[in-house]
Design a protein around this nucleic acid. Structure first.
Lengths: 126, 126, 126, 126
DNA sequence: GTGGTCTAGACCACT
DNA sequence: GTGGTCTAGACCACT
């Protein structure tokens, strides 16, 4: 289910976090679903368990998953809410940035080419 | 030269700042140019001198204009540099925001519609 | 906590800014601490609220405090960093000034007497 | 009369300017004195004449020397005034810097150690 | 209650 | 004339 690229500059635990969040938003991971155990995922991806642990504990503190000691990690009931709230906040930050930039005579074209530049980076990661 | 809309929600002094900065970026106001005096602009726009003063002193602390007490306010030599630097910084903030949003499954379409929404606000100000 | 001298040539709002910054550097005001409200401090010091407002909004734009409309003003997390950065920058400006002056045959003695002259001014403010 | 150190990081023309100014302030070079010709000084110091030319033309634009085409360069009548004015200006800049720094809780000791650090650099140049 | 904006009007130093 | 500071007092949105 999870894929990791050791060679990309991006920290592995961040790659894991991003994928978990993506799956939650897409509905692939639903509330209550059990996450793969730290050790199992570690051997599966040939990765140090500590790295998985770091990803899981960040997702926990964000409220996306919760851990039940002795039983495992589960997708939180409010996981989707948390992530959508984050998305809304970032979109409203985007709005005020665009507002400031349009004050500075930045054109629609410049803004879109800036967006496309970033999105193109992401494609290469596939 | 300057226009002010008391009814718009936007504070008057901010409207003035934005216009001065726009004129500098467009080259309408050039380095060394003398700004209209606080009192003259106040009577011209039917606005309290304190409000002009507030706009001018913010532009001063930003480095866009400088004031010589007893002589007047003038466009700073580095005005254009200051404003372009600001623009570059905001564009790089935009990039990292878009990066985060693309992690959260936001589509190119959503991003562009967000931009257009903001740009449309600006048009109504015309 | 704050003291103001209306008779000193120095603007009241500057006196306030200096005191807030001093308290932050000394650790008397810590990050997150709530500042006295504009009106309360104004009546306490027998000063117009607008003057406090001016001091607070300059401290805000410097990043020393931040204001939450409807709730109050608070010492910023990065207040100490901001002020220490300022200090470092001024010390490096001092260095290059001294370098230029030593080129112009200014003696160590002259430089120190210049410093002492200024420091003596400050003592009288106590 | 003039000494140049090609190995020091400092540009040669700046070294020349500094020495001329020092000699003027010390009274070694007096108003009306004829400066060594560009070519003669160049061969004497084993330096490209353009470098001497650059030093001389900066001293000219500063008002320290003036050139009479076909006759040579001479120490200006107002050379000492110009340099003393420069010195006074820098000293007053020093004052306001020290004022700002004392606002930031910088001690007399720190200021003096900063001065001594710079003066020590100069000694090594001897 | 809080901060933010604005008006009206005064006085200052400086050119 | 110029900008800079300050007072007195009003109204707003927000918590």
């Amino acid at each position: 289910m999870f894929i990791v690229d050791v060679m990309s500059g991006k920290p592995i635990y961040e790659q894991l976090i991003d994928q978990v969040e993506k799956f939650v938003l897409l509905g692939v991971l639903k509330e209550g679903d059990r996450m793969p155990s730290v050790r199992k995922l570690a051997t599966e991806l040939s990765i140090n368990p500590n790295t998985i642990q770091k990803a899981y504990s960040e997702l926990d503190s964000k409220g996306v998953i919760y851990s039940v000691p002795g039983r495992g990690c589960f997708v939180s009931d409010k996981a989707k809410d948390v992530l959508n709230k984050f998305k809304r906040e970032k979109l409203s930050e985007l709005e005020s940035l665009v507002r400031e930039l349009s004050m500075a005579n930045v054109t629609r074209k410049e803004l879109i080419s800036c967006i496309d530049k970033v999105l193109k980076e992401g494609e290469n990661e596939k």
